[in-house]
């Protein structure tokens, strides 16, 4: 597999940002509109909030993929 270009990688960053923004705003809407019992939804939403950062920004794959 050839190394992706810098431009492609930078573009990927914006996609991740978009996804995170959507998650964050959804959380906010739930947190402000749902008056009681919002926490299970928020708990689930932390996953799409954290996983993209771990995967695309922090390259967590390094932990089990040793080459590169």
């Amino acid at each position: 597999m050839s190394k992706p270009s810098l431009a492609a990688k930078l573009r990927l960053g914006f996609y991740v940002l978009g996804a995170l923004m959507v998650v964050e705003v959804t959380e906010y809407v739930i947190g402000t509109r749902v008056k009681r019992g919002a926490w299970p939804y928020l708990a689930i939403l932390t996953l799409p909030g954290a996983l993209p950062i771990l995967y695309y920004f922090m390259h967590i794959k390094q932990l089990w993929h040793h080459e590169e």
């Binding site: 964050e24 919002a38 932390t46």
Partner: peptide, 17 residues
């Protein structure tokens, strides 16, 4: 990592009900 931690702290402090 500091950002990930905040992803959990933000709903915990500001949003849950």
């Amino acid at each position: 990592f500091v950002d990930v931690a905040w992803v959990f702290i933000f709903p915990t402090l500001y949003l849950v009900s």
